[in-house]
Simulated assay, not measured.
Amino acid sequence: MTNASRKDPDGFRSLQTKGNGIKTQAIGFLLLDNFTLISLASAIEPLRMANQLAGHELYRWYTLTADGKPVSASDGLKVTPDVSLRTPLTLDMVVVCGGVGPHRSVQREHVAWLQGQARLSRRLGAICTGSWALAKAGLLDGYDVSTHWECMAAMREAFPRVELTTRLFCIDRDRATSSGGTAPLDMMLNLIAKDHGRELSAGISEMFICERVRNEQDQQRIPLLHVLGTTQPKLLESVALMEANLEEPIGLDELACYVGISRRQLERLFQKNLDCSPSRYYLKLRLTRARQLLKQTSMSIIEVASACGFVSTPHFSKCYREFFGFPPRDERIGNLQPVARLQVDALFKDAAFEVISGEPVSSALVALDQARGEPTYASVTVTK
């Protein structure tokens, strides 16, 4: 039997086959330094299981780094790639695997190689924060793009021509981008369904005990919805308006009017469900956004203050110090310092747990130390 194929409107090939005359698709996974291992596994494992369930090779994959040398994941584990960027490969798709600090991990070699792959009409994708590399190469302009929510503020500032969304993943023509964690699993299952039918995709999800394959309409990280469910629609609507208006904050009277309640009702909703006033919650959102911009961009403190709705830099600095315990200047200084190759003793000095003599050093300590510069480090209070 022959292999019949057609082009979907989104640019991804959908294979309709009879018998075993199916073209094997080759996918290259470009690993950036400090990529997230869970995202890589979530992307590759569905391909492995597709082959297993089909009984033949539908997909093959290669891991790549710039120089072919091992690269560290965000948890400190080192992964030895299959090849370097200089190795000639015939690929159907390239997926960039990002993680911690993509603006520091993307190198000139990555950008040049990705641009070369685009000229060869390769399909391009990204998982977690890997979309930063594609955007840096100018390959996402005008595309709907998903990235990890933690990276969205910096990407909006750095790449205004990229159409960022809050969806778990986006498949837009010949681009497929996903947020982090397990979201690449859903993206790959959807791509596999396009390639080889929903029966195979459903079989893979059953093997992975995945109760539901999420689609492109599913959104990433709506924390209040998870906390409150759907019992407080006015509160959820209010917070959504706040998040959409950080640069030019809405007055509380106006906000209450937009959601159709009185200001007193608005204040009661926030106090009862979030244990704070609406103005305090709004300030928290703006300062959290400011911290992301300070850590992930080269914007000046004045520019960050303006982008987050503060009328003056002194007022911004005062609010920032009161909320985080130090001024934004210290945040920026700490972020610009090069990452030190710490001695083991120095690394353990401020460790959150005791090191047992004679045991090998856990990579968890290195990962924890690297995470100190992340916007979400120590952002949640843990109680016993």
Rank of each mutant, 00 (worst) to 15 (best):
N273G: 03
E157L: 11
R263Y: 10
R214V: 02
C319A: 15
S298C: 10
R104S: 15
T80E: 15
V259Q: 11
G334L: 11
A126G: 04
L15D: 13
R175Y: 02
P46E: 07
T182P: 07
L236V: 08
F270P: 02
I209T: 11
D186S: 09
F310N: 02
L241W: 01
A352M: 12
P249D: 07
Q292H: 15
K272V: 13
D82N: 14
D174V: 07
R212L: 10
M187Q: 02
Y59D: 07
I356P: 13
R264D: 15
G260S: 07
L283D: 02
A367R: 01
P314T: 09
Q25I: 05
L347W: 07
Q217Y: 05
R212A: 12
A41E: 05
D253F: 03
R122S: 01
Q292S: 15
P360V: 04
P88I: 05
R6K: 08
A154P: 01
R212E: 13
Q265C: 14
C97L: 03
G98D: 06
R86E: 15
R175L: 07
A351H: 06
G98M: 10
V95F: 08
Q343I: 04
S298A: 14
S178L: 05
E267H: 10
R104C: 08
M1A: 12
G19A: 05
I204F: 13
L294A: 11
T24L: 10
H56L: 12
G180R: 02
F270A: 08
Q232D: 06
T166Q: 15
E243L: 05
R123E: 06
P160G: 06
R280E: 15
K295T: 10
I333C: 09
H226C: 11
Q217M: 10
G203H: 11
V71R: 03
D369W: 00
K136F: 01
T297S: 09
M1T: 14
A244H: 08
Y281E: 12
L266A: 05
L294I: 10
R161S: 15
C170K: 03
L114A: 00
